[in-house]
């Protein structure tokens, strides 16, 4: 099938503002958007810049706006995008070049919620055992691959770059509800900030955008309730 790729282009060394590049590609219906982007880059315009690493929906490096919706380019099939495929960089993060944005503000928020296990108690045995039920409590939020599709689909984040964003709350949720962790209250205090969890307006764009199908808004809701109970 023949598809027109409309790609948002920007070269900071040449362009004063982004522009649309149009390319015709021949693809199989079962090809992914990433394959179509590779066709453009490898055979038509080598200057097209994009991030991708594993190309199999695990590393989360090729999140972008595809036909007006955040997704991983390596997970969207060409048969689902129609005759015209519009590709833009993620919104709300500084644009570096073409489809590449600066992820550092996103990772700074990730680091802010202390995404590591905090426990200074010495375990009885060699390791910290956990029941399957206790592990199940936060299973959903362990699936996050930090692709930023959720945070950059959130209108609250578009309007306020200081908002901590859904991804960081999901990462906090993963440790807040881990019964081996001892820093839940500290994380809840961080998320109780004016730019914390309360900026969530229950829009559900994050749930739709998550390539790992995490129930992001549910996780955010549970953190909100945990703040009400603990603080």
């Amino acid at each position: 099938m023949r598809v027109k790729m409309r790609i948002r282009r920007f070269n900071p060394e040449k362009d004063s503002k982004p522009w649309w590049g149009e390319y015709e590609v021949e693809v199989e219906p079962t090809d992914r958007v990433l394959d179509a982007l590779h066709q453009v880059k490898w055979y038509q315009d080598g200057t097209l810049t994009l991030r991708r690493s594993c190309a199999h929906g695990i590393c989360g490096s090729d999140a972008m706006v595809i036909n007006g919706r955040n997704a991983l380019a390596c997970k969207v099939l060409m048969r689902d995008v129609g005759k015209v495929c519009v590709v833009e960089p993620l919104r709300g993060l500084p644009l570096i070049k073409d489809l590449v944005v600066d992820m550092e503000p996103f990772f700074a928020k990730y680091r802010a919620v202390m995404p590591w296990l905090v426990n200074d108690e010495i375990p009885d045995h060699g390791e910290r055992l956990q029941s399957p039920e206790a592990r199940e409590r936060y299973d959903d939020t362990t699936k996050c691959i930090l692709c930023a599709a959720c945070t950059t689909s959130c209108p609250s984040f578009w309007a306020n770059e200081h908002y901590i964003g859904p991804a960081a709350i999901v990462q906090a949720h993963r440790f807040i509800f881990d019964d081996r962790d001892r820093a839940a209250v500290e994380r809840l205090r961080i998320l109780n900030d004016r730019d914390g969890v309360w900026r969530c307006r229950t829009v559900f764009n994050c749930v739709q955008a998550c390539p790992r199908e995490i129930d992001v808004t549910k996780a955010i809701g549970e953190v909100k309730l945990a703040i009400l109970e603990a603080l």
Partner: peptide
């Protein structure tokens, strides 16, 4: 203006338009 462009052009579902 940029935020408004994002809001209007994002292809969200019911939650987006309800918001």
């Amino acid at each position: 203006v940029e935020t408004l462009r994002y809001v209007i052009s994002y292809r969200g579902t019911e939650g987006h338009w309800a918001w």
